[in-house]
Structure formats: structure tokens, C-alpha cells
Computed example of a mutant assay.
Amino acid sequence: MTVSSVGRRERKKAATRQAIADAALRLFLEHGYDQVSIRDIADAADVSTTTVFKHFTGKEALVFDQEQDREAQLIAVIRQRTSGQSILDALRQHVLDTWPPIETHPQRAEFTHLVDSTPELRAYAGHMWTRHTDALATAIADELGADHDDLACATLAHYVLEIPTLARGRQDPRAAVEMIFDILTHGWRPPTAH
């Protein structure tokens, strides 16, 4: 009995969180980021402002509502990869599974315009993935038996987390991700003249 009530509670929390995020994005797209208050979002989602802040740290987090579990997912990718799978291959698969679908979403153009036209959101987006560099570098170092301050592990983590920024807006986001991972895997080679 306890298990089902916990499950129900978690489902309700997740549904409330999603309702808040959906209301926020709708309002931001309709009225602009700066014209929408937390109170507006709470009213649209039929919750209190306190409830909004229980689920989100601020307005920026409402726009990027999927950010919450990213660090745990990145660490799990490293620690739970299949036997024989390299760290880079596991990270490549994770980025390919999570990032290109965002780039091809039907609301991407509207969402991108919202982010690009709002300095706070541009800054938040720029740091969204890279804020997890230390945690990812530590997970990589742990898997390799290296020191937590190992520069090679930190460098790899940093560049992997920059991939969405580098590949953003490319005609074929998936191909861009693959190309960047190929550079990380095999090293950089100068492009040949066409």
C-alpha cells in the first residue's frame, strides 16, 4: 500500500511540475519572457507561487524544465554503460538520444527566438550543459581510476558538454554531433579543400 501511495504522490508532483512548465512556456511564447511574472504562471497553472518555487529555482528554469535531472543522467551514462562500451561511445549515444530531438521539435523556432531574444535565457542556455562539467569529469575519472582533478577527464567532459552549443542551428544536427564526437575520438584533422 505504501508503494502505490508514493507512486501516486510522485506522479502528482510530476504532473504539477509539467503543468507549471507548460503554462510558463505558453505564456512566454505568447507575451514575451519579461512580460510574464511568476504570479502569472502560477495563476495559469492553477497553483500558488510557493508551489512554482518548490518545483523551479526561477523563471529561467521554467523555460528549461528538462534540466533538473541532466547531471544524474550524465553520471548514469558513464557508470551504467554496457560492458565493453567506451566512455565516449556512451556519451555519444546519450547526446544523440537527448539533444537532436530538441532541435527538431515543432516549436523549436519559436523557442529559439524566445531564448535568443532574451539575454537572461541566452546566458542560462549557454551554461545549461556546461555547469555539469565537474560532476561529469569526476565520473569519468572514477571510471578510469584517475584523480578527480585530472585535466584530460575535465577536458573531455567540457568538450562533450559544449557539443549542443557547437551543433546548434546546423542543418543536420545529428551529423554535427557525430562529426564532433569523431573529432574527440580520433583527433582533429584539417578539412580538405573542396
Rank of each mutant, 00 (worst) to 15 (best):
R70I: 15
A72R: 11
Q73D: 12
L74F: 12
I75A: 03
I75F: 05
A76D: 13
A76T: 12
A76K: 10
I78M: 05
R79I: 02
R79M: 02
R79D: 15
R79G: 12
Q80D: 15
R81C: 05
R81M: 04
R81Y: 05
R81A: 05
T82G: 15
S83M: 10
S83E: 15
Q85V: 14
S86C: 07
L88M: 09
L88P: 09
A90H: 03
A90I: 05
L91C: 06
L91I: 07
R92W: 01
Q93M: 06
V95C: 08
V95R: 01
V95S: 02
V95H: 01
D97N: 15
T98E: 13
T98H: 06
W99H: 10
W99N: 08
W99S: 09
P100D: 06
P100N: 07
P100C: 04
P101R: 02
P101V: 07
P101A: 08
H105A: 13
Q107H: 12
Q107T: 14
Q107V: 06
Q107L: 11
R108S: 09
R108P: 00
A109H: 05
E110L: 13
E110G: 11
F111N: 02
F111R: 05
T112Y: 01
T112M: 08
H113C: 08
H113L: 14
H113E: 14
H113I: 06
V115L: 01
D116H: 12
D116S: 13
S117L: 00
S117C: 02
S117F: 04
P119N: 03
E120W: 04
R122W: 04
A123C: 06
A123I: 10
Y124D: 01
Y124Q: 03
Y124F: 15
G126K: 00
G126C: 02
H127M: 14
M128P: 00
M128F: 10
W129D: 12
W129R: 01
T130S: 12
T130V: 14
R131Y: 08
R131C: 07
R131T: 11
H132T: 08
H132K: 04
T133E: 07
T133H: 04
D134T: 13
D134L: 13
A135E: 09
A135C: 10
A135W: 03
L136I: 09
A137V: 07
A137S: 12
T138A: 15
A139V: 10
A141F: 00
D142V: 03
D142A: 04
D142T: 04
E143H: 09
L144G: 05
L144F: 06
G145W: 03
A146E: 12
A146H: 15
D147W: 08
D147N: 11
H148C: 05
H148E: 13
H148K: 11
H148M: 05
D149Q: 13
D150H: 09
D150Y: 09
L151R: 11
L151K: 07
L151P: 06
C153N: 11
A154I: 04
A154V: 04
A154E: 10
L156V: 15
L156H: 00
L156M: 15
A157E: 03
Y159L: 15
Y159N: 14
Y159Q: 14
Y159I: 08
V160W: 02
V160K: 02
V160F: 09
